[in-house]
């Protein structure tokens, strides 16, 4: 085989495999949106499900998803941002710091079903929180921490050293420098982390399945069981309850993911422009 045809084959393989990846994305997103969008009506968004989700809408499930995600974000954000500040502003490269970093990486790699088992054994049983919004939210908190820490740390790194030096030389303390100079510079990085964490929390199923109970009724307190959209989708799909509602739920999830991705991209694009 001569060089020219070898080149042609090489490029053909690379381009067609890349196209394959793109096509599978378009296929999945397109198929679900086309089949599901007609099912997303005002009734679907504003009514409670009846007959195990066969009829009616998914309002309590949307609310349940919001509750669980909110609990996770409210607890994880301060911890995650503080941890990132520690890594980037306070820590020295000692053995113990390397160990903490290593365990943060480890946490990011733990499969969600393990989080589910842990959440069940720890929050549901050991802490006595039962299957509830709180148990699910706390489990998700731990799951999204690594995402938050990483995103915040990335943006902390982009703040020029001279900002810190300038602030410190004006007599500000280290903490004042962090709060008044450094954090305002990386608002958008923190926000990106938050949004990505939110995406993870909304899409998560396995961990939630073992910790929030799966009730379709409207949750009235943090200790009530509930159901998230992802879990609802699983229940509908695995039991073959209603094709129309299943497609609609899946489409709604995809739309949320699309919105989240667009916002995250937009923020990081602006960030690059600024720096």
């Amino acid at each position: 085989m001569n060089k020219k045809s070898k080149n042609a084959i090489f490029y053909a393989i690379i381009v067609s495999l890349s196209a394959l990846a793109l096509i599978s994305l378009i296929l999945i997103v397109g198929f679900i949106l086309i089949k599901g969008l007609p099912g997303i009506t005002t009734e679907f968004l504003s009514q409670s499900p009846s007959k195990m989700g066969k009829e009616g809408g998914i309002l309590p499930i949307i609310i349940g998803t919001l509750y669980v995600t909110l609990v996770a974000l409210v607890i994880a954000t301060p911890i995650g941002v503080a941890a990132a500040i520690y890594f980037n502003e306070y820590s020295k490269d000692t053995r113990s710091v390397r160990m903490i970093r290593f365990f943060t990486e480890v946490l990011a790699g733990i499969p969600s079903i393990i989080f589910g088992l842990f959440g069940f054994a720890f929050f549901v049983v050991f802490m006595g929180l039962g299957w509830s919004v709180l148990s699910g939210g706390l489990t998700l908190t731990i799951m999204i921490l690594p995402t938050l820490i990483r995103a915040t740390e990335e943006s902390l790194k982009t703040v020029p050293m001279s900002y810190r030096e300038g602030s410190l030389s004006l007599g500000a303390t280290k903490w004042q420098t962090i709060v008044k100079v450094i954090l305002p510079c990386c608002k958008s990085g923190v926000l990106t982390g938050l949004i990505l964490g939110m995406g993870r929390a909304i899409g998560e199923t396995a961990a939630v399945m073992l910790t929030i109970g799966g009730s379709m009724r409207m949750a009235e307190s943090l200790l009530d069981p509930t159901r998230t959209m992802a879990l609802h989708l699983y229940m509908l799909a695995s039991e073959g309850i209603s094709e129309e509602k299943t497609y609609a739920t899946a489409a709604l999830l995809i739309i949320i993911v699309l919105i989240i991705n667009t916002i995250a991209n937009e923020i990081s694009r602006r960030m690059i422009k600024l720096s």
């Binding site: 990846a21 994305l25 909304i202 899409g203 699983y234 799909a237 993911v257």
Partner: peptide
Amino acid sequence: AIELLAGIPSVVYGFF
């Protein structure tokens, strides 16, 4: 597009 693939919840993949 590749990043979007990472964002799609696994249960949606399962359903597909």
